[in-house]
């Protein structure tokens, strides 16, 4: 366990903290943007399901002794799952939430079995569940990949913002006016999948979907326009991340759990604020 002063005593450590901070902030930004749409479309559990699949992929990567390649392995797997889930949800006999539960628990089971069989003990697989105890395992590839993908997500989101709003608000109207709603649903699923994999290492696959659901829900306590909710969601999420991140550094807590706790506090605070605001509104 390190104190902050010890931590900052070496330039090397500062470099690592900055890396973790950059990746964390980018992932937080992406997930809080995507979360608004996902929560409103009643897709909150997709994040959770995909993160379990991500865990499965990481476990398989560890089993193959390729832990350093885990992003490169798990991104395609999770993106593919997102595709399949939406396809199944739309057409198949297995309906939305059930297929999600099947896929997510199945992936965890297969992943951990393979990991056990392989006899590899190189990475602590618990890290993938609860997030790394020490943050500072972000390699060059991870950093670059995270930065590039997060920025791509943000650009895509801004570029398609009006369409994403329309598809979220009213899918049948959007389809009738000629918007290819399936394309935007897929886009949303793919972006979510990528975001989840990027954030999983730091937050842990059990908690990464909190970054998607909490900020959106928190913002909806007080904001009543789509743009307002987006802006509020992003700011709350970034603030919670920064607070959680440095608290975790300072006291040597787990980053994921601390950041989620900060989000819980924000949610409670905003719920109360929302209640007060509504009372005023009614009077």
């Amino acid at each position: 366990m390190m104190t902050l002063s010890e931590l900052f005593s070496s330039a090397f450590m500062i470099n690592l903290v900055i890396r973790a901070l950059i990746v964390g902030l980018l992932v937080t930004l992406c997930s809080s943007l995507l979360g608004v749409s996902l929560v409103l479309k009643r897709f909150s559990m997709i994040g959770d399901g995909l993160s379990h699949v991500g865990f499965g992929a990481v476990a398989v990567a560890a089993a193959l002794n390729m832990s350093n390649m885990k992003l490169i392995i798990s991104i395609p797997v999770v993106v593919l799952t997102a595709f399949l889930l939406l396809r199944l949800g739309n057409h198949g006999k297995v309906k939305g939430d059930a297929s999600l539960a099947l896929v997510s628990t199945g992936a965890v089971a297969v992943g951990s079995l393979l990991y056990n069989f392989s006899g590899q003990r190189s990475t602590d697989i618990c890290n993938s569940l609860f997030g790394s105890a020490s943050l500072f395992t972000i390699g060059d590839i991870d950093l670059i990949l995270s930065a590039v993908l997060s920025i791509a997500i943000i650009i895509l989101f801004v570029f398609f913002y009006t369409k994403i709003f329309a598809v979220t608000f009213d899918e049948s109207f959007s389809r009738a006016t000629g918007i290819k709603t399936n394309v935007y649903n897929m886009l949303l699923a793919v972006l979510t999948a990528v975001t989840i994999v990027l954030g999983m290492n730091m937050m842990g696959s059990l908690m990464i979907s909190a970054l998607i659901v909490f900020p959106a829900m928190t913002a909806m306590r007080v904001c009543t326009t789509f743009k307002g909710v987006l802006i509020c969601s992003v700011s709350v999420s970034l603030i919670c991340f920064v607070i959680g991140f440095f608290t975790a550094c300072l006291f040597g807590w787990q980053t994921g759990a601390t950041v989620v706790s900060a989000n819980i506090i924000a949610f409670i605070f905003m719920s109360i604020a929302g209640k007060i605001k509504n009372k005023k509104y009614c009077n």
Binding site: L40, S174, T225
Partner: peptide, 13 residues
């Protein structure tokens, strides 16, 4: 959570 104008504008998409 959407304002009236956000909803109406989405008709032009």
């Amino acid at each position: 959570p959407a304002s009236v104008s956000e909803v109406v504008l989405s008709g032009t998409l």
